[in-house]
Design a binder for these strands. Structure first.
Lengths: 190, 190
DNA sequence: TCCCTCAAACGAATGCCATTCGATAATAAG
DNA sequence: CTTATTATCGAATGGCATTCGTTTGAGGGA
């Protein structure tokens, strides 16, 4: 059917995940990915249209898992403050600082993309809805001023992008702790 | 000494500003910059160590001016809410959406940099202090829990980075208005 | 006026990489 | 067994940052 060869396709994805994790988006090369997947760089283009497409294919499932796991963690906390802190620490610390640095690689990929590249904001929208839903659950009001939560979720995600972007650079100063507690207290006051 | 070098130096900076504004960081080429400055690409390396260095040299003065102008605008507003709105609209709308798109180009430059590249976070720190100072002035409390303002300033700047990063992509949905008013009301409640 | 030195300038590499091409090999279909 | 399609590969192609080796020309000293 459609799938050329499921095995090779997945070998490429796995190879790419390793390569991106080690080298980030810019320094990773299709040749290295091909070598890891035990095929040729030209053959990679039978399965993917571009380097960007590979990056997105690697990132999406990883990131969705991270978010779903985070949702779990948040739900296990008892108080509003703990829930909010858990959410923000996940998004502004744990996930972007994850070993494999896929967040930074994703940011690199998007930053170097042009408007003509095949990017869809579907994943971003999915994530923002999810966060809005979590926030809504934290305060559990059913009257649903959902738009407010979406706006906050959007800001949280833009900050997440910023954190990921700054991950590349050696940041001598880490203000994330203060930032999180500040934001938690502002949100909790709502 | 050669008076000429100053002239060429500035010709390169001007040329680079034009080139970066038109093409962003990634698509801009040293060759184009050299051509605009009426010199050769190799000669550019007499004045700058790398493409990144040029980008930062172009960005810094432009951005500082934007911030100083914004500080002015904020100071002319009368109420707390108007001041905050002015500040956030500047940082999350006007500056990143500026014609010349230098914000997006700066993000591209940083996102593609490696930790070994000659980046200093001095400008970021300067900006965050400035924003903290502005916030402090808005609420004009002299007791100065300055660290809280710095944390908020940091978050504002990370969001700014996120906005600039997303500028590359055609974003179909613009939630910046809601985001700003939401943030203003959260801050004003402090 | 004539050298001599050294910064400034340049054209031609170098090396790296995403992406494409053209040609085979393998496989499925009839 | 033939034919069409797919997968694979090695060898381009084209673009670009950066480096190299050499040349040029201004300024100071003789």
């Amino acid at each position: 059917m459609w799938v050329k060869s499921q095995i090779v396709y997945e070998a490429i994805l796995t190879a790419a995940e390793g390569e991106f994790a080690e080298n980030g988006y810019v320094k990773a090369t299709i040749n290295n990915i091909a070598r890891r997947a035990e095929t040729s760089s030209s053959n990679v283009y039978v399965y993917f249209q571009s380097k960007l497409e590979i990056a997105l294919a690697v990132y999406e499932p990883w990131f969705k898992n991270q978010i779903l796991a985070l949702e779990q963690s948040v739900s296990q906390k008892r108080t509003v403050e703990r829930k909010l802190t858990c959410l923000l620490e996940g998004l502004w610390k744990s996930i972007p600082r994850d070993e494999n640095r896929l967040t930074a690689m994703h940011i690199q990929a998007l930053a170097t993309a042009t408007p003509r590249d095949p990017y869809s904001s579907e994943l971003l929208r999915w994530t923002e809805s999810k966060i809005a839903e979590i926030l809504s659950g934290v305060f559990d009001k059913d009257e649903d001023p959902h738009n407010d939560y979406l706006a906050v979720a959007h800001m949280i995600m833009l900050t997440f992008d910023g954190v990921g972007m700054r991950q590349n650079l050696r940041q001598p100063l880490d203000r994330s702790g203060q930032m999180i507690s500040q934001m938690v207290s502002m949100l909790a006051r709502s």
